[in-house]
């Protein structure tokens, strides 16, 4: 069983909301990646999205663009990222890892070669921003190797596409809370709630994670009212880059994520009661 499926099954039976932090691999420093991943798990991460930096991140706002530029300037590439995942996996056999990024680095690496290496390293899924359902044949070798292809749904996704997306989805569906780039501050929960409910009616068993615009415990708790998991990316990346000494990065990550975990758990306990 894929670790992502197992994790969402565990969350469901425990009545908890999943917490999914995103970090850009190699930022704020290449040395900090693996300790940072462990720290995120310590602080309550249920799944980690590891961003593969790309030179032309069309769907990302300034925070993740700059994180990518910093990582690339330090020479971070796919092979090194897979090595980090392997290193993380040697001490953590359970936390699912999704690589998030754009097609070209994988295209150039070779799809089948990447798929085999990613599975061997302990990657569980891939979310490729510029590979929509219509082009997903391109990444079939990844699915064949056992990696979940995580699809996105957005406010502009029409119902017919939503049905196709939920039918093809694996792992979970990532709902983009607003039309825009990552890190923008445009979150309006009412339409998001309605849309997630509509997806739930189409596919009751498919876990839905909501991302884009989640900045803190308050917005995470609000989303937990209707989603199975919340994704926090830009706010975390921004927080980490401001924690200057490398040694402080793991503490900084814990300090950022733990209160959000606590707020989510308080909410689910209240619900259970």
């Amino acid at each position: 069983m894929n670790r992502i499926d197992r994790r969402f099954a565990e969350l469901k039976s425990a009545g908890r909301t999943g917490l999914i932090p995103f970090i850009t691999a190699g930022d704020p420093s290449p040395d900090s990646v693996v300790p940072l991943m462990h720290a995120l798990v310590d602080a309550g991460a249920d799944l980690i999205e590891l961003g593969v930096p790309f030179s032309d991140p069309m769907a990302d706002g300034p925070v993740i663009q700059h994180a990518s530029e910093r990582a690339l300037a330090k020479g971070v590439g796919l092979a090194q990222i897979l090595a980090w995942v392997g290193e993380f996996r040697s001490k953590d056999a359970n936390t699912p890892i999704v690589l998030m990024g754009y097609l070209n680095p994988i295209e150039i690496h070779g799809y089948a070669k990447f798929a085999a290496e990613a599975v061997a390293a302990g990657v569980d899924g891939v979310l490729l921003v510029d590979c929509p359902l219509e082009e997903s044949e391109t990444i079939r070798p990844l699915a064949d190797a056992g990696l979940h292809r995580i699809f996105l749904a957005a406010p502009t996704t029409v119902d017919a596409r939503l049905a196709a997306l939920t039918a093809q989805a694996s792992g979970f569906l990532y709902y983009v809370s607003f039309a825009g780039v990552t890190g923008a501050n445009r979150l309006d929960l009412t339409p998001v709630h309605a849309r997630v409910a509509a997806i739930k009616r189409l596919a009751p068993e498919l876990p839905i994670a909501v991302g884009f615009g989640v900045r803190d415990a308050q917005s995470a708790v609000a989303i937990a009212e209707f989603a199975d998991a919340v994704v926090i990316g830009s706010a975390l990346v921004e927080h980490l880059v401001n924690s200057a000494p490398a040694a402080a990065v793991t503490d900084s990550a814990r300090g950022f994520l733990a209160p959000i975990r606590q707020a989510l758990d308080t909410r689910s306990t209240r619900h259970a009661a």
């Binding site: 069309m58 769907a59 097609l103 921003v129 510029d130 590979c131 929509p132 219509e134 082009e135 699809f151 996105l152 749904a153 957005a154 406010p155 502009t156 996704t157 029409v158 596409r161 983009v176 039309a179 825009g180």
Partner: peptide, 19 residues
């Protein structure tokens, strides 16, 4: 599908598919 042989296509974020 917007293909010229192996080239072309629609490699964009989900938000842009409907537009």
């Amino acid at each position: 599908h917007g293909r010229f042989g192996d080239y072309g296509g629609l490699y964009v974020a989900e938000t842009l598919m409907e537009p």
